[in-house]
Design a protein around this nucleic acid. Structure first.
Length: 271
DNA sequence: AAAGCGCCCTGAAGGC
DNA sequence: TGCCTTCAGGGCGCTT
């Protein structure tokens, strides 16, 4: 289940195989994704050529000469490039048949993902408006988090996971970044100092960059575009390690429910 | 306006 | 072994 590093890993994995390839056809075998795949989408894509593969938040944007396909992997989606068509297995819902025979195939057991056709250039959609900055861009830093958080009483973990605040920080990386920065997940967002937000922003950036460099985090079913698993799971400090020693102070890692999500933290060195 | 929930869906894991 | 319950990486959209 893709968080931002998995989506970025997927983007980098598929891009070289699809850029400047033209689409002979798109096959949508199951339209029942998070939102039903719009009727007629096939006609918009057919015959067009992919010019770029971009990412905004966790959305992949396949840019054509006229319009874009916007794909979200949801919690269980993955993409891979097949050298030639082969009969689809269960949950393999969508194929882009590329000129020359290769197939870009979308698999999504839970069908929480989505696929939209966007006419505009640059691509615009209500799901993209209102998104916060990219965490790996220059307009994201501790000063930004500090300014935006003033007056907020809800926990800082939910604050950094809010895509209107900053995109791409899912449950795993929120836990990891808060541990790296030494910030308790349940601290009120509005009561954290500028200096600590500086550390937290740096931690978010660092953990995401490390995870991208490692090819994402494999948990259960994530497989990168080339079929290789990610290796970041070996580097997780607290996520999924309840009871194990904190890598910094050796106190047992604790787990709590925060905003309906499992939250792993060290009660000693996160304050 | 912020915050808290329910919910979409399938599969894996753990308890009994 | 099998059945049942719980949980999972997201995030929209409704209610308060």
């Amino acid at each position: 289940m893709p968080e931002l590093p998995e989506v970025e890993t997927t983007r980098r994995g598929v891009a070289p195989h699809v850029i400047n390839r033209c689409v002979d056809a798109i096959l949508v075998r199951d339209r029942r994704l998070r939102w039903p795949v719009q009727a007629g989408l096939e006609d918009r894509v057919r015959g067009q050529c992919i010019r770029a593969v971009d990412r905004r938040a966790k959305y992949l944007l396949f840019r054509f000469d006229q319009g874009s396909l916007m794909l979200h992997l949801g919690m269980s989606g993955s993409l891979r490039v097949l050298p030639a068509f082969q009969p689809p297995a269960i949950h393999e819902h969508i194929d882009l048949l590329l000129e020359g025979g290769a197939v870009l195939r979308y698999t999504d057991p839970r069908r929480f993902g989505s696929l939209h056709w966007l006419d505009g250039d640059p691509p615009e959609h209500r799901l993209l408006t209102g998104l916060g900055p990219e965490p790996l861009s220059a307009d994201f830093d501790g000063g930004y988090l500090h300014r935006l958080s003033r007056g907020r009483r809800s926990p800082v973990k939910g604050f950094i996971m809010d895509p209107r605040v900053v995109v791409g920080v899912g449950n795993i990386y929120a836990c990891e970044a808060l541990h790296m920065a030494g910030v308790r997940p349940d601290r009120a967002a509005g009561r954290i100092s500028a200096a600590r937000y500086r550390r937290l922003a740096e931690a978010i950036t660092e953990v995401l960059e490390q995870a991208i460099a490692a090819g994402g985090t494999t948990l259960r079913d994530f497989v990168g575009a080339g079929g290789r698993p990610g290796y970041f799971s070996q580097a997780l400090r607290v996520y999924g390690r309840a009871g194990a020693p904190c890598p910094r102070c050796a106190a047992p890692v604790r787990v709590a429910r925060l905003a309906q999500r499992s939250t792993y933290f060290c009660a000693v060195c996160q304050t």
